[in-house]
């Protein structure tokens, strides 16, 4: 059974005013449990609006959303339960930190769930390990930490709620390359360990290609496609046309093929590309092998 399912989901901003804008247009989607989904799209393509529907922060203008088989309704009590089931990490989550200590801040979500103090403590220790933070930092003020550490505390705050679905909006933006790799690495680890559904919104095709098993492409408020990573990047021309670049390595291989090299161009990670090239070069040097 699909863990997230939408039927004709449409969202309109400013209905009835001159500023009316359709942000999400008739999206039909089924996401299976345990998937790592990359969400890509141009700025203003509706991807952020779309993900805010999954935990009931935004309510669809029309259409239906099912989370874990249950339809999202406007009932406030149920909406809160949905928010614990679907953890949403916003862009620049470090700006939401407010407590005196990191410990208290991470505890905010679990506390709202009404968990016991022991359970909260257990979860905090667990998530802190997951996001690779030192337990000593827990007693420090979040405002004393470095940018990357702050972000990890903020992400831990959502992870500690142990959501069935974790959605992250641009979790690596504004960090240096090392910080990027760290954050994306820990998300991948989290996914592998918990086997939860993870959605990763990103601008960077490289990041998505490296981590996601499926890709959801939004274009001009519409769902362009939702498919396996290879299949999506195979449509490089269409992606480029809508202003989205495929990973650089894919472009290199597409060009090689266009130049007449007999090569498989379904390449979207540098690792795989290197191996492929080495194979070909080997064959050229030793045609008899």
């Amino acid at each position: 059974m699909a863990i997230i399912k939408t039927e004709n989901l449409t969202y309109v901003y400013g209905e009835g005013t001159p500023f009316r804008k359709v942000a999400v247009d008739d999206v039909n989607l089924e996401i299976e449990e345990g998937e790592m989904v990359g969400v890509i799209g141009h700025t203003g393509s509706g991807k952020s609006t779309l993900i805010q529907h999954f935990n009931g922060l935004l309510q669809a203008t029309s259409g239906k959303i099912f989370i874990d088989g249950e339809e999202l309704t406007k009932d406030k009590g149920k909406l809160r339960d949905v928010r614990f089931k679907v953890g949403l990490v916003f862009q620049y989550p470090e700006y939401q930190l407010f407590e005196e200590t990191c410990y208290k801040d991470i505890a905010f979500g679990p506390k709202n769930m009404g968990l016991s103090d022991e359970e909260i403590d257990k979860r905090i220790r667990e998530t802190v390990k997951l996001v690779g933070l030192d337990e000593k930092l827990l007693d420090k003020s979040p405002f004393e930490l470095s940018g990357g550490q702050k972000r990890r505390v903020a992400i831990a705050g959502v992870m500690a709620m142990n959501p069935k679905i974790l959605i992250l909006d641009e979790p690596a933006s504004g960090l240096d390359p090392k910080g990027r790799d760290k954050i994306l690495g820990l998300i991948k680890e989290y996914h592998q360990e918990k086997k939860n559904t993870v959605m990763l919104v990103s601008h960077s095709m490289e990041d998505v290609a490296k981590n996601a098993s499926k890709i959801l492409v939004m274009n001009k408020a519409k769902l362009f496609c939702y498919d396996d990573t290879e299949k999506v990047f195979h449509r490089a021309d269409e992606l480029t046309e809508m202003g989205l670049a495929v990973p650089q390595i894919t472009r290199v291989f597409n060009r090689l093929k266009a130049m007449g090299v007999d090569i498989n161009d379904d390449v979207y990670t540098v690792k795989y590309g290197t191996r492929l090239l080495l194979d070909i070069l080997n064959k050229k040097q030793h045609p008899d092998l």
Binding site: Q52, N55, L57, K76, R80, R83, F84, G87, L88, V89, F90, P93, Y95, Q96, F108, G109, N112, M113, G157, V158, M161
Partner: peptide, 19 residues
């Protein structure tokens, strides 16, 4: 805009602003 964003983020962590 910022207030809106922070409110959404805290609501996503289960903050209850209305009751």
């Amino acid at each position: 805009e910022e207030t809106d964003k922070i409110m959404s983020a805290q609501k996503a962590r289960g903050a209850d602003l209305e009751s």
